[in-house]
Design a protein around this nucleic acid. Structure first.
Length: 272
DNA sequence: GGCCAGGAGGCCT
DNA sequence: AGGCCTCATGGC
């Protein structure tokens, strides 16, 4: 219980379909960890790592079995049952969140796209962030047909100016993006760093503070010890865990955060 | 029905 | 402690 999860789990080469709980797709894709997805009717769509992806909830399980990249993206090799079992034992409230909304996944998203998304997220709302990411793709990404575009790589944004980014609607975040492009090589160095070191490295980018760097590390690098504390999570902690530290949920703080946040949003009718 | 503040999943000075 | 791009939202 005190050792890190990835070391203490029994080695399994591959989970089979029957070993997995059905993914809570809506909570996973629309609860703030990604700005890439849309849902039209029953169909989920996004461009993931330069590739158009679409599926219905019914189709996803078999798609995951065939598609290695999506298997990884949806973090299918991680033992969520073990993590949820352990978190459920923390207290009845968290247990009830997990029972109600299982099973939320922590996605393994592209670090660059995640960095840009969360730089844009400050003082902003999800709808506008999504629109901004889409306009960035349309303006500077690679056309993939059917009106879809890849998310632009740092190289594709290298010559883009602050003024052009403001024109897209980035506002005061435009210079932050310019700086992120210039320092994008940091992202390739994160894997070798501890959580703390990685957070410091990310925070050397303008517009990246404690909260944004926590989101990048959790939603792109799968650092589950991170617990992004935004205004909502501060309220949730004050209400349900006054005086307690997020380490209460160790070593799965990030997963606990997703459940607590989703439950709060659902209670207050702000889903999606 | 329009108008207009305050606020939106932070960060910087 | 305040300001910041911009705009959907709710209160008058």
């Amino acid at each position: 219980m005190l050792s890190m999860p990835r070391l203490s789990f029994p080695v399994r080469l591959r989970y089979t379909l029957s070993m997995q709980k059905a993914i809570n797709i809506d909570a996973t894709l629309f609860c703030g960890q990604s700005f890439a997805w849309s849902k039209e009717g029953e169909v989920y769509r996004a461009v993931i790592d330069g590739r158009p992806v679409s599926f219905t909830g019914e189709e996803l399980p078999s798609l995951l079995e065939q598609d290695r990249a999506l298997w990884r993206y949806f973090d299918c090799s991680f033992d969520y049952e073990e993590a949820e079992e352990q978190l459920s034992a923390v207290d009845p409230y968290l247990r009830s969140c997990i029972v109600s909304f299982a099973s939320v996944r922590i996605l393994r998203q592209d670090p660059w796209e995640t960095t840009v998304g969360f730089i844009l997220s400050q003082n902003n709302n999800i709808a506008r962030i999504r629109g901004l990411c889409r306009r960035l793709s349309e303006a500077y990404g690679r056309p993939l047909g059917e009106g879809l575009y890849s998310f632009p790589r740092p190289e594709e944004l290298a010559a883009v100016t602050e003024e052009e980014l403001r024109a897209l609607g980035a506002g005061f975040r435009a210079p932050y993006l310019v700086d992120a492009v210039a320092k994008s090589r940091i992202l390739g160095e994160i894997a070798a760093l501890s959580d703390r070191e990685a957070q410091e490295a990310l925070m050397s980018i303008d517009g990246v503070g404690v909260k944004v760097s926590s989101c990048i590390l959790l939603f792109a690098y799968h650092r589950l010890r991170l617990f992004p504390l935004d205004v909502w999570m501060k309220r949730i902690m004050a209400e349900h865990y006054p005086g307690r530290d997020p380490a209460l949920f160790a070593p799965y703080e990030g997963l606990a955060q997703q459940y607590l946040f989703h439950a709060y949003r659902s209670e207050h009718g702000r889903n999606g």
